[in-house]
Design a protein around this nucleic acid. Structure first.
Lengths: 228, 228
DNA sequence: TGCCCGACGATTGTCGGACAATCTGACAAT
DNA sequence: ATTGTCAGATTGTCCGACAATCGTCGGGCA
């Protein structure tokens, strides 16, 4: 989600990410891929030695993670991987509905490029589902990218940024349950129905459709979370 | 907006704020009160000496400020006070409308305590306006607290947190223009009209009313910003 | 004279180490 | 069994240092 400060030029991406950002990216990857379980304490010294960087650098990276909601910091007790609770999933989904709903309602006024992007991200998702070769993290990534593209319809960078933060929290929750329940592909056609409603100009219908879609996703995640 | 980790007990608040948080609070205060102009570079060494703390502590505090959008960090060029542009004000107001609009639409389903809070914050604002003794920062604070209370109607902590971040950005912009144009009090009765519509059950009317209110505020801020 | 280029100072990015404050857990005492 | 105390571990904060990078200034060249 374009957090790294990389510069792309003729297909060659010059890695100009700072050390802090690289460490943060590595921690994110580990969290999303489930290498770090929920609640695992992130010791600064151990991480510094493990990653070959200094403790202050690790500290800054941890601060970034905490700011993103992927980890929590308690005074004098350190940082640990955030534990997604049912409450927070419910709240994330409520916030999602506000943001994505605003995007759907803005469909008519939206830029053509943004509407095209909704199609693009959906296609990237459904094709990956049909191919069946992508990892579960990859599928989650594309699935949530589609939902972000809905928020992009609003044309507001800040709302998009908020949506990305929410998606990161969801990815964290999904990383905890995905190895138990694998239910990524049964929603692919549901998204196509949403886009069809939009194309048909039935914005209110799409709005209501989205509400049910998010509610269903919320229930599934919470249900899967309960039996963890 | 309750960022400090203080514990209240029988009126006695135990100050358990970390040094970083204290420094960040001091910088926030300086920015909001206009002591630091927009674009002013925040040198780590100078701040460390001035505040009597070490450079790493200042660095962490600056990272917090950057995360809140009050300052911007450019690689190897340091942190400087963010310069509110017309674009960002427009974007903040668009995002505000989405968030506060969601709150207004949730009026009917909202908790009684939250509805009461809308009244409370409005009363705190209008009374301060009528008294005429509060500073402009104080008036802005109460004005924006009312708008946050609208978002609180959604009952979503995350949406409230987003709204607070947006308000901080607005406070920054207002700090740049307030000493030029002082137009805090002419909107007080407008808010009362909004609440009256809500009380009457005219949610859609209140929604539209809010849209115009935010649009007006946006125009005023941008207009004031242009002649800076 | 005007422009490009390299050296210089200033500032940040990162590092290593150090010490006090605080939390955790276990052990001893009542 | 509960409580008080102590040792270990970890974080919070500080200090000093060095390399990397940016902005600027002065010198060489067309």
């Amino acid at each position: 989600m374009s957090r790294t400060a990389t510069t792309a030029f003729a297909g060659l991406s010059v890695e100009h990410a700072s050390t802090v950002e690289r460490v943060a990216a590595e921690l994110r990857r580990a969290v999303f891929e489930g290498e770090l379980e929920s609640g695992t304490p992130l010791r600064e010294i151990a991480l510094a030695e493990s990653l070959g960087v200094s403790r202050p650098t690790v500290r800054e990276a941890l601060t970034v993670l905490v700011g993103e909601g992927l980890a929590t910091r308690e005074p004098h007790r350190g940082v640990s991987v955030a534990t997604p609770r049912a409450d927070s999933v419910r709240d994330v989904c409520r916030a999602r509905w506000v943001l994505e709903g605003a995007g759907v309602l803005a469909w008519a006024d939206a830029d053509h490029a943004r509407r095209q992007r909704v199609h693009t991200t959906l296609e990237a998702y459904t094709s990956a589902v049909r191919a069946g070769t992508a990892s579960y993290e990859e599928l989650n990534e594309r699935h949530l990218a589609f939902h972000v593209s809905l928020v992009e319809l609003t044309g507001s960078p800040r709302l998009v940024q908020m949506a990305e933060a929410l998606m990161d929290e969801l990815k964290l929750a999904l990383a905890q349950v995905d190895r138990i329940r694998r239910n990524a592909h049964d929603q692919a056609d549901s998204h196509e129905g949403l886009v069809r409603l939009l194309e048909a100009g039935d914005v209110d219908g799409a709005h209501e459709f989205l509400r049910r879609h998010i509610d269903d996703a919320e229930d599934e995640i919470i249900e899967a979370l309960e039996l963890t």
